[in-house]
């Protein structure tokens, strides 16, 4: 079970409005040679997306790529005042290649906001977010929401190289304690990340841990949460067809009362309790 149902319902009530909205691309830029940043002009309810919620994107067909299904994508930023909705993604296959062809001014259909997002418990004083690659995009809005609630954030940002660390500025802007760990200098090794986590726990700065984007980091976070008894949540991905709980394509295995059960990532998640989620 998620920690605080009250907070959860405040953010991502299952009866919160969803729309298949026509948005307009306002900018679409390459962040580096792997990641792209898409900013849309959008209205409500799209811009009311809570941290951890996702959208189901109708990627445009290009002359080479014609994805038939939509693609799920977690929210990078949603701002109801500015009327903007942002995504940060890595071009990884047919769908994202097609997505990458969008140009400013293009119309673009997004279904959402969908799914159950992150939960922040009012009792927490300091949380740890631990992510890698585009997983950090999913954690950035969570860190901002925590900061708004006066909760301190340590952000352990893992990447292959320094230039692939995503969103360090966004974590920095909210006053998070930013700890980049890299493959290039070996600091991203599990032993080192475990050391950092243990240090935070000793200092009383780890009331909960949140992760996204790497199976190795997920296992580390899950073990850490179990050993220290702290709460934890993970945002998961899975191939989807409908995005709204109808087709049962996006199931994963979860440990519930000592049994492995299937849950739908789109409907029961994409954010799950670390205790229930299993390695992939």
């Amino acid at each position: 079970m998620l920690q605080s149902c009250e907070t959860r319902s405040a953010w991502t009530a299952n009866d919160a409005p969803v729309a298949d909205a026509e948005t307009i691309v306002s900018s679409h830029t390459a962040v580096n040679d792997e990641y792209r940043h898409l900013v849309l002009r959008a209205g409500r309810p799209a811009t009311l997306a809570a941290p951890g919620q996702f959208f189901h994107l109708l990627c445009p067909a290009s002359s080479e790529d014609k994805p038939y299904l939509r693609r799920p994508m977690s929210t990078y930023k949603a701002d109801p005042e500015a009327g903007t909705l942002e995504f940060l993604y890595k071009v990884a296959g047919l769908g994202t290649r097609a997505l990458a062809t969008l140009k400013p001014g293009d119309p673009f259909r997004v279904l959402g906001p969908l799914g159950v997002g992150f939960t922040l418990d009012d009792g927490w004083r300091h949380i740890v977010v631990l992510g890698r690659g585009v997983g950090l995009a999913t954690l950035a809005p969570l860190a901002e929401a925590a900061a708004r609630k006066g909760i301190g954030v340590t952000a352990i940002l893992s990447a292959r190289r320094p230039d692939l660390i995503m969103s360090a500025d966004r974590f920095g802007a909210i006053g998070a304690d930013v700890r980049p760990v890299l493959d290039t200098d070996g600091s991203s090794a599990p032993e080192n990340v475990r050391e950092i986590l243990a240090g935070l726990a000793r200092e009383g700065r780890a009331d909960a841990i949140f992760t996204c984007g790497s199976n190795r980091l997920f296992r580390l976070a899950k073990d850490f949460a179990r050993e220290t008894g702290i709460a934890g949540q993970v945002a998961l991905e899975q191939q989807m067809a409908c995005g709204i709980g109808m087709c049962f394509c996006c199931v994963r295995k979860f440990e519930v009362d000592g049994e492995l059960v299937d849950k739908r990532v789109c409907w029961d998640g994409p954010v799950f309790d670390l205790k229930e989620a299993t390695s992939w």
């Binding site: 014609k66 994805p67 038939y68 299904l69 047919l94 899975q238 191939q239 067809a241 087709c247 049962f248 394509c249 199931v251 994963r252 299937d262």
Partner: peptide, 23 residues
């Protein structure tokens, strides 16, 4: 019924192939 192992769906030209397995 639990249903079939994933992947349960794959895209194809103008359609998809599913093997959900009636969970």
């Amino acid at each position: 019924r639990a249903g079939n192992p994933v992947p349960r769906v794959c895209e194809t030209t103008e359609g998809l192939i599913n093997s959900i397995g009636i969970p």
